[in-house]
Design a protein around this nucleic acid. Structure first.
Length: 343
DNA sequence: AATTCTAGCAACCGCTATGAA
DNA sequence: ATTCATAGCGGTTGCTAGAAT
């Protein structure tokens, strides 16, 4: 037995709104407000629409001060800044852009902005990988784009020791598993080859983080913490949701890889390239291959962005952090990232 | 000119959060 | 403390117009 429907589906019109329907709804709300009850509203005004549909139509289209039309460069920047910081919290992002709706921003990101950021790489990947299937190309594109973004963020933290990335106090609250991972990473030794202090190879860090997550999940399962009562552990919501049912079997746990280090030239190239593709060295590719197990954990390689993208759902919903300050904190990130892609 | 493909957008669906009873 | 109705959110779907073949 499922949930009771919010309205009588059989007698409800779906699809695009007519101008008459728009006029009816707009006229009523402007005169009377919503009355705090969207479900009852369509019946009051004789609309054969679901209350949810009325609400969406009002919020996304009819409401006064809605901005239609193209996004400005400043709006692009804000959206990218916040997306990098908090992920797909469209309503929070929309709150920073007066007149824009979450739906609008979500569509804009999915159809244009994302491509604008990644698109330049697509062509060069296509050139290099001609002969491989389109699926492989897309896979390589999205994985390495994420790697590149995170690597750039990591390097950014070295250049600016007081930056958001290097200051755990500024980071969003992490769950216990993430805390342990971060502690382990912070304890790792400096890399003498690169002279980059604690900037241990990011791919290695991520590989180790995966291993730790697997170990922790396994120990939880041994201790009787099943997926059904996992709610006692505030795991990530949405993209990075860890699910013990999809964790790779023990035999697939990755071995500690040999640690190749990025050369200074590679780093320089990464930071300064404008649209050039990131060509992983042989050693890096070997490690990158290990990240397939990430997909088995949470379905996407977004897990690599364990600290930049993961905000505990509870803290987000209880407003224990401020999206406005996040926006400021992340301003520099996107600007540099955008520079790298020559938007 | 007809057909197919693609991008952009509006709307829907299902889930979670919240607050009242 | 529990149940229920509604609001709000984010992911997905489907339609349409324009581009490409």
């Amino acid at each position: 037995m499922g949930r009771a429907p919010c309205c009588d589906k059989a007698n409800v019109k779906k699809g695009p709104w007519s101008s008459e329907e728009d006029a009816k709804l707009k006229d009523y709300i402007e005169k009377n407000g919503t009355g705090g009850n969207w479900i009852a509203l369509p019946q009051k005004i004789g609309l054969k629409r679901c209350g949810k549909s009325c609400r969406l139509r009002w919020l996304n289209y009819l409401r006064p001060n809605i901005k239609h039309g193209s996004f400005t460069e400043e709006e692009d920047n804000i959206i990218c800044n916040l997306y990098i910081s908090i992920g797909s919290r469209w309503s929070i992002i929309a709150a920073q852009l007066p007149g824009r709706t979450d739906n609008d921003i979500k569509n804009y990101w999915n159809t244009r902005l994302k491509k604008k950021l990644l698109g330049r790489r697509k062509q060069s990947q296509m050139n290099r990988l001609s002969g491989t299937s389109q699926d492989q190309i897309e896979q390589n594109l999205s994985n390495s784009a994420l790697e590149r973004l995170q690597l750039h963020m990591q390097l950014q933290s070295l250049e600016n020791p007081l930056s958001f990335y290097n200051n755990p106090a500024l980071w969003p609250k992490m769950n216990p598993i993430q805390e342990k991972i971060m502690q382990s990473l912070q304890n790792m030794n400096p890399s003498p080859q690169t002279g980059l202090g604690q900037n241990v190879d990011i791919l290695t860090q991520a590989a180790i983080s995966v291993r730790l997550q697997q170990e922790l999940l396994e120990s939880n399962s041994i201790n009787g913490i099943s997926s059904s009562n996992r709610s006692s552990i505030p795991l990530n919501h949405g993209n990075n949701q860890l699910d013990s049912t999809t964790v790779a079997p023990k035999s697939n746990i990755i071995e500690q890889p040999d640690i190749p280090t990025f050369t200074q030239a590679e780093i320089d190239n990464l930071l300064n390239s404008k649209g050039a593709s990131f060509v992983a060295s042989e050693g890096h590719e070997q490690i990158a291959d290990q990240f397939d197990c990430l997909k088995e954990i949470d379905g996407t390689t977004d897990a690599m962005m364990w600290w930049s993208n993961d905000i505990d759902t509870n803290s987000a919903s209880s407003n224990s952090w401020d999206s406005t300050s996040l926006l400021h904190q992340s301003e520099g990130i996107y600007q540099d990232y955008a520079l790298g892609y020559n938007m």
